[in-house]
Amino acid sequence: MRNIDAGLIKKTVAQLCIKANRQLPPDVLEAIINAEKNEPWPEARRILGLLSDNVALAAEKCLPICQDTGMACVFVELGQDVHIEGDLEKAINEGVRLGYDEGLLRKSVVGDPLRRVNTGDNTPALISLHLTQGDKLRIIVMPKGFGSENMSALKMLKPSDGVEGVKKFVLDTVNAAGANPCPPIVVGVGIGGSFDKAAYLAKKALLRPLNEPNKDEYYAGLEKELLDGINATGIGPQGFGGRTTALGLAIETMPTHVAGLPVAVNISCHATRRASAEL
């Protein structure tokens, strides 16, 4: 059994909130730079160049990359041999509160979905907790903006819809989203499980680095086919036209019921932000 102090968790979450909002992960920046090189449409190329400039400017001025500093999605992988001294959930929320305050990040959370009063500190975080082997604690913070979150969708397909039904739903969702989610987008697809698990898988897919294809060859092929399909829609950067509509697409799957084929599409923007630490 290894002890980890809740105070350390709070401090780590605060640092990750600030880092994630100011620095784009290397794989996402690399994807933007590569897309600029391969983009045939001049206006689209110009916009992709400005997106790289924005990342550099944010680092130089210690500003967030995007003003929508998101809801803090916090993924915790907790080793079963860890003992936390204190309250884990409280520590995470205190970390979000501290990070969003000290990092001058935007407070974008309302305490009730219908009565809509801002909580003033960007809490609560959206926490996903997983038990793992060992005595380590891994924390990933993904600030998720809602321009793209709002364009996400879930559908309970029939097993007879099969892979063609999945492809159609992903492309329909991206086409319906159009310019709204700040293309070039990153697409997370969750297939299988249940209504709620499919949505969770789609969000989890956004954590995977863009240069890492699915370990299952069948799904790696499907990821490539869907990405090519999305980049043939013509939507382009900012929806002004061009090849680069998406920077990456990842699929996560889970066993499901004989009667069902749940599919969820979680859309993220070109500022797909994530930062992680291991304690």
Partner: peptide
């Protein structure tokens, strides 16, 4: 259509891109 982030000391405004 913008909801900026809080301004750092050196600037009059924080990040200030457009919303949907």
């Amino acid at each position: 259509y913008v909801g900026p982030t809080p301004a750092p000391e050196s600037c009059c405004i924080g990040a200030a891109g457009p919303t949907t």
